[in-house]
Simulated scan of single mutants.
Amino acid sequence: MSYGGRQQDLDYARIAKLGFFAGVAMFVIGAVGEVIGRTMTAGMPAAADQLFIGLEAVGVLVGLLVPLVFGIVLPLVE
């Protein structure tokens, strides 16, 4: 058994695209949830508000970092 080579080939372009769209989806869910929560209900619970704000922040980070890492850095390192 040889462990010197790679065990699997990753499709970096596909991972970068899916990661970007996952980040966009998280951001949109957070933004829409916050808008609907504030307009449809008299008072949104603090936990739900924090969840939607967190989704927006994590969505932006994922949407920016995953394409950078899987689209630029890892293909150059390999």
Rank of each mutant, 00 (worst) to 15 (best):
residue 20 F to S: 09
residue 44 M to S: 06
residue 44 M to H: 07
residue 28 V to K: 04
residue 37 G to V: 00
residue 38 R to H: 12
residue 62 V to H: 04
residue 26 M to F: 10
residue 37 G to S: 04
residue 59 G to V: 00
residue 9 D to Q: 15
residue 41 T to K: 10
residue 34 E to H: 12
residue 57 A to P: 06
residue 43 G to C: 15
residue 33 G to D: 05
residue 1 M to C: 09
residue 59 G to D: 00
residue 21 F to R: 06
residue 63 G to S: 06
residue 36 I to H: 08
residue 16 A to M: 03
residue 32 V to F: 02
residue 9 D to I: 10
residue 66 V to E: 01
residue 8 Q to D: 14
residue 50 Q to V: 08
residue 70 F to I: 00
residue 56 E to I: 11
residue 67 P to R: 01
residue 6 R to F: 12
residue 37 G to N: 03
residue 59 G to A: 01
residue 52 F to I: 02
residue 26 M to D: 03
residue 65 L to P: 02
residue 49 D to L: 11
residue 15 I to R: 03
residue 24 V to T: 03
residue 15 I to E: 04
residue 21 F to S: 05
residue 56 E to G: 11
residue 64 L to H: 07
residue 62 V to E: 06
residue 76 L to Y: 07
residue 29 I to K: 07
residue 37 G to C: 01
residue 37 G to Q: 03
residue 34 E to G: 12
residue 35 V to S: 11
residue 65 L to I: 05
residue 23 G to E: 04
residue 37 G to T: 00
residue 62 V to I: 13
residue 53 I to C: 09
residue 21 F to M: 08
residue 34 E to T: 06
residue 72 I to V: 09
residue 42 A to M: 13
residue 38 R to E: 14
residue 68 L to I: 10
residue 65 L to W: 04
residue 11 D to T: 07
residue 70 F to A: 01
residue 45 P to D: 14
residue 18 L to T: 14
residue 14 R to W: 08
residue 66 V to D: 03
residue 19 G to H: 03
residue 28 V to Y: 05
residue 52 F to P: 00
residue 2 S to P: 13
residue 4 G to Q: 12
residue 13 A to L: 06
residue 54 G to S: 09
residue 4 G to N: 12
residue 40 M to E: 12
residue 45 P to R: 07
residue 37 G to D: 00
residue 42 A to N: 13
residue 25 A to P: 06
residue 74 L to M: 05
residue 5 G to N: 15
residue 58 V to D: 08
residue 54 G to E: 05
residue 53 I to H: 15
residue 15 I to M: 09
residue 71 G to H: 01
residue 48 A to V: 13
residue 1 M to K: 11
residue 27 F to R: 07
residue 14 R to C: 09
residue 25 A to K: 06
residue 63 G to T: 01
residue 36 I to S: 13
residue 2 S to G: 15
residue 76 L to I: 07
residue 48 A to Q: 13
residue 61 L to I: 10
residue 23 G to V: 04
residue 78 E to M: 00
residue 32 V to C: 01
residue 13 A to S: 07
residue 28 V to Q: 04
residue 20 F to Q: 11
residue 72 I to D: 02
residue 32 V to H: 02
residue 48 A to Y: 13
